[in-house]
Amino acid sequence: MKTLYILNNPQHFKQCASAMTEEDTLLLIENAVLLADQLEPRSNYFVLEEDLIARGLSNNAEWQTKDYQGFVQLTLDCDKSVSWL
């Protein structure tokens, strides 16, 4: 079952990543977008563009970005979503 993990707290990345399998997808939102500046990008990792821009990080990130339209689509492409709070 493909799960979308939505992470909004950068301090919870390790726990969240350890719960994920290879077929799962990660989306960083809110303060967790700061991680896109620190961690290596991956094919199943995405970051919310609006929240990156709001924090002045839009040019630094090599991560794949999603806008809100892409965010909604990700929730549909996966079977369910888990918000890792």
Partner: peptide, 30 residues
């Protein structure tokens, strides 16, 4: 698709309510 949202974010001290509103507006526009 049919969506429902669960919102636990404090409106006075976190971004979650704003994120939920943006998400709701986007899915409705789609």
């Amino acid at each position: 698709a049919i969506f429902s949202l669960l919102v636990t974010a404090n409106p006075h001290s976190s971004q979650g309510q704003f994120s939920a509103i943006q998400f709701a507006k986007t899915l409705l526009n789609q």
